[in-house]
Amino acid sequence: MALSNIYELYQTMERDNTMLSFKGVVTSDLLTSVLQIMESKLDHVEKSPKTKKKVYNVLVECLQNLYHHNEEIGQSEGLDFLFSKSALLMISKNSDHYEVKTGNYIAKHKSIELKQKLDDINALDKDGLRDLYKSVLSDGELSEKGTAGLGMIDIARKSGNKLEYDFMPVDDNYDFFCLNVKID
């Protein structure tokens, strides 16, 4: 990377009002640190306790999604194992909203399932999301990893906006899942 790119990178992050950005493997310790840093940053910049809680909540679920759903990805052609476990997280504060962006590799067969789930979520309004949350909560079972299948529904509820997403094709086996969550 040319040295001038460092400045460009800085300018991009400055323009996007980036509060924190991370690229790498999301471990339990990393997750804890990011949450601590973001909590103290939010204490400084955000006056509304309500917004602070919503942003924090979305962050917790996004980070835990990255933590839980990145670990089973194995070897793929052209994709190094460690590289494929790597994820991206960016948090920015704009004048009237926050954005939490995540990116991670996902097996293609899981993309289809996830896309369906996200479309179903995006088709619902506030009350619909609450009903869906309630029914998954009362009927669903926890997976071995302790995931409840509620994360994306909760993110959508706290966000108050539609979930923006895309799946970028990487190779025959993997996509790169991009998610942008806007919180008013």
Partner: peptide, 11 residues
């Protein structure tokens, strides 16, 4: 605060 994993355990 509680996360979605906890929400199931609380139930």
């Amino acid at each position: 605060y509680f996360n979605t994993s906890s929400s199931k355990c609380i139930l």
